[in-house]
Amino acid sequence: MSRFISKMSRRAIVQALIALPALSLFRNQAAPANPGEIDPDEIVEINGWILRRSDLA
């Protein structure tokens, strides 16, 4: 994986990763308490990342 990454441009890495449909399976997203009221500014911790919920879109 690391050799693969080092050969690609930065933008290409991100775009390739985004394009992979299977990736969403790994998105360990925290479910909102009430799906109707999603607060985009809520802070969530996923895979060690401290993110805003809106980052997960």
Binding site: L17, I18, L23, L51
Partner: peptide, 15 residues
């Protein structure tokens, strides 16, 4: 680069 690739798995837009 590694960090951004890792972030892409969790939050692609942010990445």
């Amino acid at each position: 680069k590694k960090l951004i690739a890792d972030l892409a798995c969790t939050a692609p837009n942010m990445a």
